[in-house]
Amino acid sequence: MREKRENPGDLLQGTLDLLILKALARGAMHGYGVAEWIHQTSEDVLKVEEGALYPALHRLELRGLLSAEWGASDNNRRAKFYSLTSSGKKQLAQETEFWCRMSGAVARILQTA
């Protein structure tokens, strides 16, 4: 009955989650901030679709990896700030390790002649 997973922009599902967790590792941030941080940190390579970002944030919140709180933004507007929970931090560590192993492996394969 669940809807089919639509193409969440240019990023794979798990990857987006990982990037969101990484972005929030530096402290609480609102959704826009997360998107911007990823965009800038990747030197404009990665562009997070909002249509994927917010559902992902909400799902991570449901999974207990993020907690959310309403607060005031820099320009004093009401915004929802997300931060990592302790299990979110754990998840980030695991996922990072997993990602590095995988990408290393993929890279090694691709580098063979």
Partner: peptide, 16 residues
């Protein structure tokens, strides 16, 4: 309305 607010905030940030 929370969801609405959150997305509206994003829009206005992009607009700025």
């Amino acid at each position: 309305s929370d969801l609405e607010d959150e997305l509206a905030f994003h829009l206005s940030m992009t607009e700025q």
